[in-house]
């Protein structure tokens, strides 16, 4: 019974919490910039409003234009089911689930990029190219980072190696854990189009990555895109938090998890406020550095 309740709780958090992260980030950034900022729940309002609107769709597009956001959302939800939200593991855990996570997100990217190219817009093609390119660089960092942890704990499921056995890793191979955390943070920023990789709030299409891809998506489609992106951010944030806060068991773990999420959101907000966006040509180096960090983390483990 407890398991069912926990699962339901997790489903609820997965469905409800992600936009809140966006709200927190926006509020933090506003505060640092000296503004009051939008309400914390503003992303929810935005999504709700967008879903009610009419659509404007280019005649150039095909079914892929609609499939993009749809599959991105489904993929994000599946990904969220694979990460150990809160305490006691993920909704669905199995050996190699982090690889499945990467592939599901890859599927989402495939269709988002295709949807962007579907419009025939030069700007969206540009964004799509950047998205696909950066993914190729983020992928090895992400996989190597989690592999380092997996290698250290000897288990190959997220719920297992981000579970109780993680504490021993922090004590045993702390250096490599720090490296992994750093690498994963970079991946989080890149995958979720945050500064310094991408600026979600800029108004110059030439400098965008993710935002420019969805230029033509409006109304309900944009709403779905926003919601999906929020869930993706939530997935990465969860991974990072579970890695950084190896507390397990009971309410304390839950508290630590939720607190961790909030801290992560705030941290992202702070990072976004205090750093400038990198030049587009420097992003690969940034991501390669993350790959190196994670690769080093694997090598450092003398097992």
């Amino acid at each position: 019974m407890g398991i069912v309740i926990a699962a339901l709780l997790k489903v609820a958090i997965i469905l409800a919490a992600p936009p809140l992260l966006l709200g927190v980030i926006a509020r933090v950034k506003a505060r640092i910039a000296g503004r009051v900022g939008p309400p914390l729940l503003q992303p929810y309002f935005d999504i709700a409003k967008l879903l009610r609107k009419d659509s404007v769709i280019s005649p150039t597009t095909s079914w892929l234009f609609v499939a993009g956001p749809a599959i991105a959302l489904v993929a994000a939800l599946i990904a969220a089911a694979l990460v150990p939200v809160g305490d006691g593991g993920a909704l669905w855990a199995f050996d190699g689930d982090f690889i499945a996570l990467a592939y599901v997100l890859g599927l989402a990217r495939f269709f988002t990029v295709a949807a962007a190219l579907d419009t025939g817009s030069s700007f969206e093609g540009m964004g799509a190219a950047r998205e696909a390119t950066f993914a190729c660089l983020a992928e090895p960092a992400f996989v190597l980072g989690l592999l380092a942890v997996a290698h250290a704990t000897g288990s190959v499921s997220l719920s297992a190696f981000l579970g109780p056995s993680l504490a021993s890793v922090w004590t045993g191979a702390g250096a490599s854990s720090v490296l992994v955390a750093g690498g994963l943070l970079v991946v989080l920023l890149a995958e979720n189009s945050r500064i310094p990789v991408d600026d979600p709030t800029t108004h110059l299409e030439l400098t965008m990555v993710h935002e420019v891809m969805v230029l033509d998506h409006g109304g309900p489609l944009l709403g779905v895109v926003l919601y999906g992106a929020a869930i993706k951010l939530f997935v990465f944030a969860t991974l990072l938090v579970k890695l950084a806060v190896p507390i397990h068991g009971g309410a304390l773990a839950w508290l630590a998890y939720l607190g961790g999420l909030a801290v992560a959101a705030i941290a992202i907000g702070v990072i976004e406020s205090v750093t400038a966006r990198l030049r587009m040509s420097h992003v690969p180096a940034f991501l390669l550095a993350a790959t190196l960090l994670c690769g080093l983390a694997v090598v450092l483990q003398a097992r």
């Binding site: 769709i57 280019s58 150039t60 499939a67 749809a70 025939g120 033509d216």
Partner: peptide, 18 residues
Amino acid sequence: AFLAIRRVVRRRRAAETW
């Protein structure tokens, strides 16, 4: 999801790509 979203975007008009 595809069917659902296509239902939602049924109310639409066409305009050239932005």
